[in-house]
């Protein structure tokens, strides 16, 4: 449903992304505050929009990928806001908000005819499953951004010729720390997502292992998380390796989602 509200949210996220990029370049306080304001405004409106859709049950069938993207972008912004409250990294907005914008934009692409959901879909297990899984994905997105920033800063430091990014990106240790935290918080979320998803599948299809649209990529994402955890704590993957792994893991999940949706 591409209502006016949706377009306002989209515009807010686009403007916020551009403003964060401006801030990355010019680094004036007021630009950062403007970007944060735009983002917060867009987020509030998106909360209203999604809440309204949930309330009136005019959501698309839960099988629709595009619906998830809309919710995912909300989850990404929510994760960003929590992160920036604990880790005041000015540059983070410039990396993560554009991703949320893209997700929102793509979610509005198809022409959607509102349908009322069959009773089977109005289930708490389904809701929890989706909520958990999405937060897990949002954490994965955060790790991706932290990984990208880490690789950029590492490149700057290794080159021994600090450029503009050297000043604008935080320290390697902070980025690695963020990467690790996102992993530790995202993994249980994704696990919960799979567990509740299985419960719902049992409820709907009578079996815990029903392969529907979203479960395969979800499983894959869970595997990537498990791999990253093992890598970090058992194999001592830190710094550059962990960053590469976070970027790679995100790309794998993204690709798997698209492949599956086609």
């Amino acid at each position: 449903m591409n209502s006016l509200l949706f377009h306002i949210v989209l515009l807010a996220y686009l403007l916020a992304s551009l403003t964060f990029w401006f801030h990355l370049g010019l680094r004036r306080r007021w630009i950062y505050q403007l970007a944060s304001g735009l983002l917060a405004g867009g987020f509030v409106l998106q909360t209203v929009l999604l809440g309204y859709r949930l309330w009136t049950q005019t959501f698309l069938s839960w099988d629709h990928v595009y619906a998830y993207l809309g919710l995912l972008s909300w989850a990404i912004i929510a994760v960003y806001l929590i992160t920036v409250w604990r880790y005041p990294i000015d540059a983070l907005g410039a990396f993560i908000v554009p991703l949320a914008f893209l997700a929102t934009a793509v979610s509005g692409v198809p022409e959607i005819i509102p349908t009322t959901l069959p009773a089977a879909f109005r289930n708490l297990w389904l809701g929890t499953h989706i909520f958990m899984a999405l937060l897990g994905y949002a954490a994965l997105t955060l790790m991706f951004c932290a990984g990208v920033m880490y690789l950029m800063q590492e490149n700057q430091l290794k080159s021994k010729r600090p450029g503009a990014l050297y000043y604008r990106l935080p320290s390697l240790s902070l980025l690695d720390d963020l990467n690790g935290r996102a992993l530790i918080l995202g993994f249980p979320l994704l696990t919960q997502g799979i567990v509740t998803g299985s419960v719902w599948a049992k409820y709907l299809h009578g079996s815990y292992l029903h392969w529907s649209l979203t479960s395969l990529p979800l499983l894959l994402a869970w595997l990537m998380y498990a791999l990253l955890l093992a890598g970090r704590f058992a194999l001592g993957w830190r710094g550059k390796k962990a960053a590469f792994a976070a970027v790679g893991g995100f790309v794998v999940v993204l690709v798997s989602y698209f492949v599956h949706a086609l």
Binding site: Q153, L157, Y166, P170, S171, L172, S173, L174, D177
Partner: peptide, 9 residues
Amino acid sequence: QLARKIFED
């Protein structure tokens, strides 16, 4: 300054 960009604290 470089040390701080690597180690934070």
